[in-house]
């Protein structure tokens, strides 16, 4: 029964690993990597859902939600979620897992690739280059071709993990998807605190010796990240209750940011 559901071949998964390079094609601050994330997986989503446009559109819409993860490791997540998608798992399970996993994966990737690997490789290869030796850039290139090739490994790993977990998931899929939703909600709460930055620069003068720094002395004393939460909820209110269009909200936010910067408030 399960075997017949498999429509993706090993070759497809390898192809997916290479296509994961497109992750940041349409990078932007509102949805971050969502456009490229969906685009990378699109041929395989099509292969899974075939001519069922309703299913395909549901899947594309889910994938268009905010995501920001690490480009080198994203294949793992793509492989994992595609295996669930292939098995026509509950959409909430797929979404919940995605929201729960992308941010930790980004943190791990940044720690490994930006903060550890790059300084080491850059340091070694630069020391050769400064002496005028071509070995420098060649070492650098070799290491990063290796890192790129590892995408194939991560992607297969994710896919295989998903296919082996699928049997277990099936027996209690409702309970698992409910749990995944809870996990996702917790991480979204954390995401708001971690990704939205609003820092008030204004200070209020009380007398000539004393002034109150609004951010450090006022907002941070009440609750750190209260402004990011407030702004997010305000946007949520406009979207949900006022049916405001996201474009309008983006444009207003952008103009607001430039204006506040010009006034020296933010």
């Amino acid at each position: 029964m399960t075997e017949s559901k498999r429509v993706l071949s090993k070759k497809d998964i390898t192809k997916l690993a290479f296509r994961s390079t497109l992750l940041q094609s349409s990078f932007n601050y509102e949805r971050m990597q969502a456009g490229g994330w969906t685009w990378s997986m699109l041929p395989f989503l099509k292969k899974i859902h075939k001519d069922d446009d309703k299913k395909l559109s549901e899947s594309m819409e889910d994938n268009m939600e905010f995501i920001n993860t690490h480009p080198n490791l994203v294949g793992f997540l793509m492989g994992l979620l595609l295996s669930l998608e292939e098995n026509k798992e509950d959409r909430n399970l797929i979404k919940g897992l995605k929201v729960a996993l992308f941010a930790p994966l980004a943190g791990i990737g940044d720690a490994i690739f930006w903060f550890t690997l790059l300084p080491i490789v850059a340091g070694i290869s630069a020391s050769f280059a400064i002496q005028g030796s071509l070995i420098g850039p060649l070492i650098f290139l070799a290491v990063y071709i290796g890192v790129f090739a590892l995408r194939v490994v991560w992607t297969h790993m994710g896919y295989d993990l998903g296919t082996s977990a699928v049997e277990k998931i099936k027996t209690s899929s409702q309970a698992i998807s409910k749990s995944a939703t809870i996990l996702g909600s917790t991480v979204i709460g954390g995401l708001i605190a971690a990704y939205v930055h609003i820092e008030v620069l204004s200070t209020v003068k009380i007398n000539k010796d004393h002034s109150v720094n609004l951010q450090a002395d006022f907002f941070d004393k009440i609750f750190p990240s209260i402004l990011p939460l407030g702004f997010t909820l305000l946007m949520f209110y406009f979207l949900k209750k006022k049916k405001a269009s996201p474009v309008l909200l983006i444009a207003v936010t952008f103009i607001f940011a430039i204006l506040m910067s010009a006034l020296g408030v933010l």
Binding site: Y29, L191, Y195, V196, T232, L233, M235, F238, L249, T253
Partner: peptide, 8 residues
């Protein structure tokens, strides 16, 4: 600030 719209 813009990620706030995405989270909303």
């Amino acid at each position: 600030i813009l990620p706030a719209v995405g989270f909303a």
